[in-house]
Amino acid sequence: MKRAAMHLVLLFVIFSIAGCGYNTMQRNEEAVKAAWGNVEAAYQRRNDLIPNLVEVVKAYAKHERETLQAVTEARGKVGSIQAGKDIVGDPKAFARFQEAQASMSSALSRLLVVAERYPDLKANQNFRDLQVQLEGTENRINVARTRYNSAVQEFNTSIRIFPNSLTNKLLLHLTPREPFKAEAGAEKAPQVKF
């Protein structure tokens, strides 16, 4: 009888500790996934705006072929990276994603600098609308990235602190997720100014 009771004690302790940590980690992993979804959506939104932007700029600034091409190429590169949930768990794929988006950002800001030189383009209502949309999208990207990073931080902490780390090692085998790092030379979102 006593031995059975001791077994039950053991079982109870394991469940009260492991059970809780287990749920927390699962919840946090889902939170990271959701936050990543928002990051992807925001970047996708930007990508969708680019063809229109390129078209409008092309109409006024035909000579800026190089800049326009850089944007189109960067967009192609971003598109070729299979954006999916697996990126979050794979540091290499994550780095590739981040790099591609960073080159997209810089190509885009170069394009906007070039656009400054064409008063007709700047006055074009279509272009101005696109600028507003781009601005909003950059802001969404910022917000999504920040929230993703805090979700990642919470997740990474939750798989490292004590009882959880044990549960993770035995049951879940979750690996830490990568946060976004500030891009070199791109601490600020590209300034979109009239």
């Binding site: 009888m1 006593k2 059975a4 009771a5 001791m6 039950l8 004690v9 109870f12 302790v13 009260s16």
Partner: peptide, 17 residues
């Protein structure tokens, strides 16, 4: 539940739980 089996078991479970 445990305490109804034995006081020691209940005590230990309480002390840890």
């Amino acid at each position: 539940f445990l305490g109804s089996f034995s006081r020691v078991a209940g005590g230990i479970a309480g002390a840890i739980g």
